[in-house]
Amino acid sequence: MRSKVVFARMLRNRQTRYGLIALLVLLLLAYVGPFFGPHDWLEKDFAAFMEPPSADHWWGTTQIGQDVYAVALHGMQKSIVIGFLVALISTGLAALVGASAGYFGGWLDKALMWGADLLLVLPSFLIIAIVSPNLRGGSWLWFVLLLAAFSWMITSRVVRSMTLSLREREYILAARYMGIPGWKIIIRHVVPNLSSLLIIDATLNVSAAIIGEAGLSFFGFGVQPPDVSLGTLIAAGSDKVPGYSWLFLFPSGLLVLLVLSVNLIGDGLRDALDPGSNS
């Protein structure tokens, strides 16, 4: 019943509709777009280096003759997957750890928070830089896990302190007195009441993960060539903006649109989940 009501409320919001449409278009572009382009992303056109956009190369070509349209879309696929996966894993982990620590308290709370603090004091960039060469042959999914593992701690502390105050609310007491087990109360009452925070956090995490991935890729620790992501493309195009702006503008434009549409949806979801908001 709840999901139906929430969905109806969400669709009523105009900005959310725009966000949803934009994201849908971007997803279609990323996954269906390459089939319509005249070139494959691995193909190199030795007759056209650094060509501006034309009828043959819609978004121009790169230094080594790759079609920017094909490469950017392929990079976006990777960025979308990494961004969403990292956000999902880290926010989910934060909610789970924070809510359990706050709700159950006692030694579980101490152990979980000690773990979170430990991860907080470790310099994540350094760890990823050290670990990633060992994963060079492995799947990029390891990279996702690494990114997620270092981005949930602060949120989980916030979730924990909010859970501490939620725990004393009468509806939680009512549920407890009804004989509902703790983990069900967490899922059904605690987490939905933190959903505003979690959704904003997840949205921010999507962009943070994409940007974090770009930063690491720039230094060679992230997505490894020949594979590309929006991050590596932006990094590669950033120094050629004055003369060859298409190298930078198309990937970064896609990145901005991607983050913006995710943010719009996040806003709409928050409003729909929070019956107190009027918009």
Binding site: M1, R2, V5, R169, E170, Y171, L173, A174, A175, Y177, M178, G179, I180, K184, R188, H189, P192, N193, S195, L273, D274, P275, G276
Partner: peptide
């Protein structure tokens, strides 16, 4: 099942994130 409670503050006692139908269904499902 046989021992239930009604709280003082009717706003705080109902989960604001749940439609009334779900609130009432909760003890039934549990």
């Amino acid at each position: 099942r046989d021992l239930q409670i009604v709280f003082q503050d009717p706003m705080a006692a109902l989960d604001p994130r749940m439609p009334v139908g779900d609130i009432l269904a909760e003890p039934l499902r549990a």
